[in-house]
């Protein structure tokens, strides 16, 4: 269909790129709509207040695990990171547990998870989920051990404790479905240009870059590719959905799984805008430690997967 429509030779690079683009765009977008809708409904069961309630009074190690898991299902946007951070620490939730949540919330993204499942199969999706949680749990735990409370801005601990009785509106299934639809309108409405752009980039790589080009810079042979991928990924910012098509194209062209995963995680989990927001509540040494620990965790995951696969 693609070929006859565009009157292109089957072998032509353009045909290959166009086919990749036309086949993947509707597939990815449809999957995205479905998942964002379902997640919108799941999230209606978890408010930040409820998550805090679950976490308060938990011991540190169990707290890290729970915080990382709750980070996945609690509605979270980076503009709420600061109030949430303060709300957590002022109720006595340990700093390390709070960080487990703050790391897992953006990094283990359910949209990315299901897109990975749809595009690469359950193995890659499961790897992404488990390593993301692992990094969040361990990084938070280390931050807790390091006793870094002195690097939290002084005014934070003087803030009155946030109440949790605000969401008194009764929520029923009609509301939940509405919330799911709102999420679709909100998220898909925002990310679709990036997805199409991402697939376009993917298509470009697919059609034009020689098949082993990526293998030489991002393949297993190059030991430095993992730290390099993280270094490039950290200042970049993209939502999880937008980065997936690029990941797909890189993998298809022979880049190693661990390297690509490291790149993806550093783009999603660490970003300059987020640091600027966090600077209001964290002193620079704590931000630096936070970035260093998470980046190290991501690199370990990268090496691990290059070793395993």
């Amino acid at each position: 269909m693609t070929y006859s429509f565009f009157l292109l030779a089957k072998e032509s690079r353009i045909a290959s790129a166009v086919q990749f683009f036309l086949y993947d765009t509707p597939k990815v977008l449809m999957l995205l709509v479905l998942i964002v809708f379902l997640v919108g409904i799941i999230r209606s069961f978890f408010t930040p207040e409820r998550t805090r309630h679950i976490l308060s009074g938990k011991k540190e190690s169990l707290g890290n695990v729970l915080a990382a898991l709750l980070g996945v299902v609690t509605p979270f946007c980076s503009c709420s990171a600061v109030p949430l951070f303060i709300g957590f620490v002022t109720t006595g939730i340990p700093l390390g547990v709070t960080f487990s949540f703050l790391i897992s919330a953006p990094m283990v993204n359910e949209v990315a998870l299901v897109l990975l499942y749809g595009l690469f199969g359950w193995k890659v999706a499961l790897i992404y989920l488990s390593t993301g949680l692992f990094i969040a749990i361990i990084s938070g735990w280390i931050i807790g051990r390091l006793k870094l409370e002195k690097y939290v801005a002084d005014w934070v601990y003087k803030t009155p404790q946030a109440k949790s009785s605000i969401n008194s509106e009764v929520i029923n299934w009609d509301n939940r479905i509405q919330l799911g639809l709102d999420a679709v309108k909100d998220i898909v409405g925002k990310v679709w240009p990036y997805i199409i752009l991402g697939i376009g980039v993917g298509a470009g790589i697919h059609g034009y870059v020689p098949a082993n080009f990526m293998a030489s810079i991002m393949g297993k042979g190059a030991w430095w590719s993992v730290p390099l991928a993280v270094l490039i990924g950290v200042p970049m910012y993209s939502n999880a959905a937008g980065i997936i098509p690029i990941v797909q194209a890189l993998l298809g062209k022979g880049a190693a799984l661990g390297t690509v995963l490291a790149f993806m995680m550093s783009v999603i989990a660490l970003s300059v805008p987020e640091m600027i927001i966090l600077k209001k509540v964290l002193k620079p040494p704590l931000i630096a430690i936070f970035v260093a620990i998470v980046a190290t965790g991501i690199m370990i995951v990268g090496y691990l997967f290059n070793f395993l696969f």
Binding site: P83, I86, G87, T159, P160, A162, I166, N167, E169, Q178
Partner: peptide, 30 residues
């Protein structure tokens, strides 16, 4: 201002305060 926002003891923004009482936090209501 984030410090002023936090003095209202909310955990998620945006929030709507009516006559000094927080009525909505974290979403835009219908």
């Amino acid at each position: 201002d984030i410090e002023k926002i936090m003095s209202f003891a909310v955990m998620s923004t945006p929030a709507l305060v009516i006559d000094g009482i927080v009525k909505v936090a974290g979403h835009v209501p219908e």
